[in-house]
Every structure is written in structure tokens, then in C-alpha cells.
Design a protein around this nucleic acid. Structure first.
Length: 376
RNA sequence: GGGGGAAUUCCCGAGUGGCCAAAGGGGACAGACUGUAAAUCUGCUAGCUAUGCUUUCGGUGGUUCGAAUCCACCUUCCCCCA
């Protein structure tokens, strides 16, 4: 299922086979929380910009339209008309991001819906059931994404609960996959490592969950306020304690520089809202760093966002025009910026894969990081 | 021709004697955003030799210790009646 093709230092070039196709890693998963990438991005667009995996969210789809409706429509793949792999996040991040709207108990989490305030209960079993209804390719374990900073005492208690929840997730997922009427009987389950910024807690937890023989392992709870140095240190400590023959996923990360560094520490999967959200907010990525198209200096800039870029935005449109659209709040402006950013991320990953294959990842990383800081 | 109303800082618009360089929008300018409660949020928007000073509320003159606010005249615009 997971096959390492080439290693270059700790960086891995691998293939991950799923029922919805083979994922070439390292990979960036394009975030479409509510079964759509914000910014009016269609399935056809995703095919054009090189998307391999789309990520959607258990909590959001449970709230709206409801996972039973998605199931009735034949599962997320049919519903979205996307036949490549889909990873669903478990709702664990909403335990973090909806902190004001939820209460954590051993059995699970009580939420108030951010849409209408309705009471929602989600525990490991519920999360697995919802994800089974969604029939994603990869389900994520239901965890608590711990805020930063948190006390050691809290982190240890939370991590132990996340482990107990993980065991329950695995049991429930096996049961669901064996049901005769399940849509995707090959649904995979990734566990999630937590431990805040406490490296010993991280390593201990990684060792524990590695015993469970899951389909993949994620490092969660990073990029939530700690420094980059802390994040890289945690990866240095944690990734070696996760199974080498399973994919590693760094959740929610990150900037191009974060990804370059994390790949160098053995990470295969990434996802982040940056390319889509920043695109909607007028920030676009180039090999020389990020541009803010709202800035006055692009008012009459006839150049594409990036010279030579093959994305749908750069092939036809100028910075000046996209800036105008963004300022005029025309949806096309956001759409073009998001398409560019996702294309940039997907192609950055392609370059990363090639560099590993050609055994030159270290120099590629240094050169790319250097370029990113240079500006134009 | 007669009667009434209005002119405010880039725009709209509040303010009708001191607490006013002037509310609130908008626009402009800049910043933030890392498993998306995010097409969102924040800051800023007269000038300067800056805990103060100068210019600014259609124009000119006046009343007052003090005027965007009161008075006179002028200019422009709007509405109603002929």
C-alpha cells in the first residue's frame, strides 16, 4: 500500500495506493472543508491544477448538509464528482477552533453548531460513523488538537485521552468497514500524534499509537502558535518514532518553507488553508516569496503573478487585472488567485518529488528557501 | 416672480456655542491569517520643527473669552407655488 521509492537523507519519495488511486508523495492535499475549495474552484479546475487529494471535514459536513444525505447521494466522491482520493478530517481540529462552542468529556465532545447553535455530540464512534457515511478514502482519528501554550499536566491528560479515543476509532472503523452496506469497505484510518511542545510526551505518544498498526500516522497540534524552531524540533523528535513503513502526515502545515523543512524530516502528507485563504485575501505565492495583490504597486503591473507559471490565472491575466477584480470584490479575482496558489503548491510538491528522486533534495531545499526570501 | 431648504475633512453623512481635527459608513492605504465559525479580521486616513502648534466645516465680514455651530451679505445647489 505504502511504498518508498527513494530516500534522500530523511526525505522520502513514496507511493500510497488507495481504492481511489495512487498518491505520489510528498503531497499537498487541497483543503475543501465543506466539500468545496472556497473561491469557486470546481472539480475540472482541480484536475487542471494538478490536485491529487482533496481534504474535507467531518464536522462541517455533518452539520451541513448532513452525512446521511451525502451517504444517500452515494458518498462524497459521487456527491462532489471527484474520483481521486479524499481525506476527511475528523472534527478534532474543531475541538480546538470552536473552543468557545464545545465541552470535552471522556466519551467525546459536545458542540454547539456554529451554523444554528444546535447541540451536537461527537465522539470517536460518531466521527467514524460520519466518515464512513461520507465514504472518504482516508478517515482521520478523532483527537483533541491541544492549544498552545498548554501545561504539561493538561497535555499529558489530553494525549492519554486521545490514545483511548484512537483505540475506539480503530475498533469502530473495523466494524463499519465490515458492514455489508458500507459504501467504502476499504476506508483507511490514520492516527494522530499529539503532545504539544513537550518532546518527551510526543515521543511516548508516537510509540504508543505506532503499536496500533494503522494505515498512516499524522502529527497534529502543530502550527498553533509555537515557533518554527519548536515545530521543527518536535518533528525531529517525533517522526522517527512513527512507523517508517506507513505514511506520515503533518496536519495543517503550512507555508512553502514549512513544507520544505518538514519533507526533509520525513513527512509525506500536508494540508493547509493558506493557498486558498490567502488567495481569497489577495496574497499570492511565487518562487520569490508572497505578493499582496492589494498593494498599490500592482495597480498597473502588466505581468502575470509569476512569469512562466502554467496556471489558469498566469496564462492569460495580469496582476493589474486580478488586483482590480479583488478590489472590486469580483468572485473571479478570488478564483484566479486561489487557482494560482493551489497550482503553486501542487507544483512545488512535484518539484520536491523530482528533487528527491534525483537525489538532490538538500540542495533543492536550500536553493528554494533562499529564493523565497529574495523578493523580486 | 414668490416661498422654503441645503452647502462638513477623498466621498456619503452626523454634529446646531467650549468635551471638535470633527461620530458612523464608504473608498484609499497597510497588516494579519498554518487539520477554514475566515470573500474575514485589525490598523490607518489634514499638516508639522509634534505631551504642542498651524490650517480645515461654501465665501466675506461680524457677535463672543471661545464659532462647523449665532448674525449680515454674497455664491452655488435642491424643492414647492406661479
Amino acid at each position: 500500500m505504502y511504498k518508498i521509492i527513494k530516500k534522500c537523507g530523511r526525505a522520502k519519495r513514496a507511493e500510497f495506493q488507495t481504492v481511489h488511486g495512487t498518491i505520489q508523495t510528498p503531497v499537498f492535499m487541497n483543503v475543501g472543508t465543506a466539500a468545496a475549495i472556497k473561491g469557486a474552484v470546481s472539480t475540472e479546475d482541480l484536475e487542471r491544477i494538478g490536485t491529487q487529494v482533496e481534504l474535507s471535514n467531518t464536522y462541517h459536513l455533518h452539520v451541513r448538509p448532513g452525512d446521511k444525505i451525502v451517504r444517500q447521494m452515494g458518498g462524497l466522491h459521487k456527491f462532489m464528482v471527484w474520483n481521486k482520493p479524499i481525506l476527511t478530517d475528523s472534527g478534532g481540529f474543531q475541538v480546538f477552533s470552536l473552543a468557545g462552542l464545545r465541552r470535552i468529556k471522556e466519551e467525546g465532545v459536545h458542540f454547539h453548531s456554529h451554523v444554528d447553535g444546535a447541540k451536537i455530540f461527537m465522539g470517536p464512534e460518531e466521527s467514524m460513523q460520519i466518515q464512513s457515511n461520507l465514504a472518504s478514502t482516508i478517515a482521520m482519528a478523532f483527537d483533541e488538537c491541544i492549544p498552545n501554550p498548554s501545561t504539561r499536566e493538561y497535555v499529558e491528560r489530553s494525549v492519554d485521552r486521545t490514545t483511548r479515543w484512537l483505540v475506539r476509532c480503530k475498533t469502530e472503523m473495523e466494524r463499519l468497514n465490515s458492514l455489508p452496506d458500507t459504501i467504502n469497505r476499504h476506508q483507511l484510518l490514520f492516527g494522530i500524534n499529539q503532545g504539544g511542545t513537550y518532546d518527551d510526551v510526543r515521543m511516548r505518544h508516537a510509540d504508543e499509537i505506532s503499536q496500533l498498526d494503522l494505515d498512516g500516522y499524522a502529527v497534529g497540534g502543530l502550527a498553533v502558535g509555537e515557533s518554527h524552531e519548536e515545530m521543527y524540533h518536535i518533528l525531529d523528535c517525533t517522526v522517527p518514532h512513527l512507523p517508517e513503513d506507513k505514511p506520515t502526515y503533518l496536519m495543517g502545515v503550512g507555508t512553502p518553507a514549512n513544507i520544505l523543512e518538514a519533507v526533509d524530516r520525513g513527512v509525506d502528507f500536508f494540508d493547509c488553508v493558506y493557498p486558498s485563504r490567502n488567495g481569497r485575501h489577495g496574497h499570492v505565492y511565487t518562487k520569490h516569496g508572497k505578493l499582496n495583490l492589494f498593494n498599490a504597486k500592482y495597480e498597473t503591473d502588466p505581468r502575470p503573478i509569476e512569469e512562466g507559471c502554467g496556471c489558469p490565472a498566469c496564462r492569460r491575466y495580469s496582476r493589474a487585472y486580478i488586483r482590480h477584480l479583488l478590489k472590486a470584490k469580483e468572485m473571479l479575482g478570488m478564483r484566479l488567485a486561489v487557482l494560482h496558489n493551489l497550482y503553486y503548491y501542487n507544483h512545488l510538491m512535484e518539484d520536491i518529488r523530482l528533487a528527491i528522486e534525483e537525489d538532490r533534495y538538500s540542495s533543492f531545499k536550500e536553493e528554494t528557501l533562499y529564493q523565497l526570501t529574495q523578493g523580486e
